[in-house]
Amino acid sequence: MKLLVTFSRREGRRPIIAQVVKDTGVLINVVRAVIDSHEGEALIDIPDDQCEIVRKRMADLGATVRILEHAIILDEEECVDCGACISICSQEVFSFDAAWKIVVNSVRCVLCGHCVTACPHGALTQSEET
């Protein structure tokens, strides 16, 4: 399961993720992280059954945590099922079904954004909240 963690950096530079790993013993896989002087945003991947414990500890340490559900959104009206998104996605989010229609497995998405620019029909957008 992927969690999107945002935290402020104004109150010093506490190593939030390292702290949570230490406190909970859950091995956190950081998929993406964007951190500047004011705030940080990290996309982390953890086992589903340990979501709650990680989420709670993160919140205790002052981070905002959101479960990433629909990372990438496909506009069925614009999509022509060409498949340009398939081979450029390192996470194998996209595939064809038996009728050559695009299937999106957005759970795998790490928000890299390559597919959004590569789609010739502008049919893909990243989840708005991110």
Partner: peptide, 14 residues
């Protein structure tokens, strides 16, 4: 092994 993908739509071709 390299992944392939099309730019034309086989579904729409059908």
């Amino acid at each position: 092994e390299v992944r392939t993908s099309s730019l034309s739509s086989f579904r729409r071709a059908h």
